[in-house]
Design a protein around this nucleic acid. Structure first.
Lengths: 124, 124
DNA sequence: CGGCATCCCAAAAGATACTG
DNA sequence: CAGTATCTTTTGGGATGCCG
């Protein structure tokens, strides 16, 4: 890809300043997991699975590993019989909670407008 | 506030209250487009493309159509030679701007902690 | 210039079976 | 219980070419 400096703005470098956060937090299933953990202090693997019926164990494991790696989720393994694993959000992830609340409020305030626009568009 | 409601055991799951917003706004390229339009009042197709070097025309078109359908972007076609198309955000989409700013602030405040956690995880 | 149509592929996600 | 391993499927996205 080439850098075209002809325009008034330098074109090659206009990255979205919050795109890294999107990749971290809003990847599929990810924000759902974080939101559940933000309400429950700690949850077991099977508990998460039953709250998100559509997710398979494989994918849920992948997301939890990634969140753990990124410091957003803590995993505690209890060597018992049967084994028990508890997931919880870290203090770092808890700083996302206001964002989740804002998004929920936006949804309550404006989602209907989106659905209306969609209907109007489809009728044309 | 501790929420430890024991109302589980219904299989319907526990849907994420802002997941529709995530699908609308944080799909790939989408928030980048909205953020660019929130800064430029109106932009042409090729202008968007040059600000987002990695996106192909096909995908950019798909995203813009979807945003137009959802009432978040307005498309204005000028019948000239050569043809000219201008995109802009709608008032509805401009209500998302505070969210974008919050995400940018979160990134500035906490992204380094994520990268640190990642390094620590990978060293183990 | 700003697309749409078509074909194609890689990556993500799902299904299933199995284990410490 | 909490995963892992393997395989299959889906689908989002890239490449190319044509058109008003």
């Amino acid at each position: 890809m080439e850098i075209d400096m002809v325009d008034e703005d330098h074109l090659a470098g206009d990255p979205c300043p919050f795109e890294p956060v999107v990749d971290l937090v809003f990847a599929r299933w990810t924000s759902h997991v974080l939101w559940l953990l933000s309400q429950h202090q700690h949850m077991r693997f099977g508990e998460l699975q039953s709250h998100i019926p559509a997710v398979t164990p494989k994918v849920l494991t992948e997301r939890l590993r990634r969140l753990e790696r990124d410091g957003l989720v803590e995993r505690t393994y209890h060597r018992e019989i049967p084994p028990r694993v508890e997931y919880s959000i870290t203090p770092l992830a808890s700083t996302l909670t206001p964002i989740f609340r804002t998004l929920t409020a936006w949804s309550e305030d404006h989602l209907h407008a989106v659905l209306d626009a969609r209907d109007r568009f489809d009728q044309k």
